[in-house]
């Protein structure tokens, strides 16, 4: 799966979770950029992402995620690890 594929899928998840079809993801995007991105929707986001990509995040990994770029890279690494 390429980074572009991941971003396409992740964009769909973001749009679903925040109910906003105008969301376009940028690597430096953080919770400050989306008003509805609070701790509760964050969990929804993580769970939906885990489900969509068939992966599982570790607690520490989620702690270390600071922006969308981190998120995409982490998904990429997990998906690759799963395929290997």
């Amino acid at each position: 799966m390429t980074e572009a594929d991941i971003k396409t899928k992740l964009t769909a998840i973001f749009r679903d979770v925040f109910d906003d079809d105008s969301i376009v993801l940028r690597d430096d995007m953080t919770a400050d950029d989306i008003p509805e991105w609070d701790s509760m929707s964050h969990v929804t986001l993580v769970v939906a992402t885990e489900q969509t990509f068939g992966i599982k995040f570790r607690t520490a990994e989620i702690e270390e995620m600071h922006d969308v770029g981190d998120f995409v890279r982490l998904i990429g690494a997990k998906v690759e690890g799963k395929a290997a």
Binding site: S39, M40, H42, V43, T44, V47, F57, R58, T59, I62
Partner: peptide, 14 residues
Amino acid sequence: PALWHRGKQEVHPN
């Protein structure tokens, strides 16, 4: 348990 530690959610969203 991870969700409990992260946000004190005992019931899994799923």
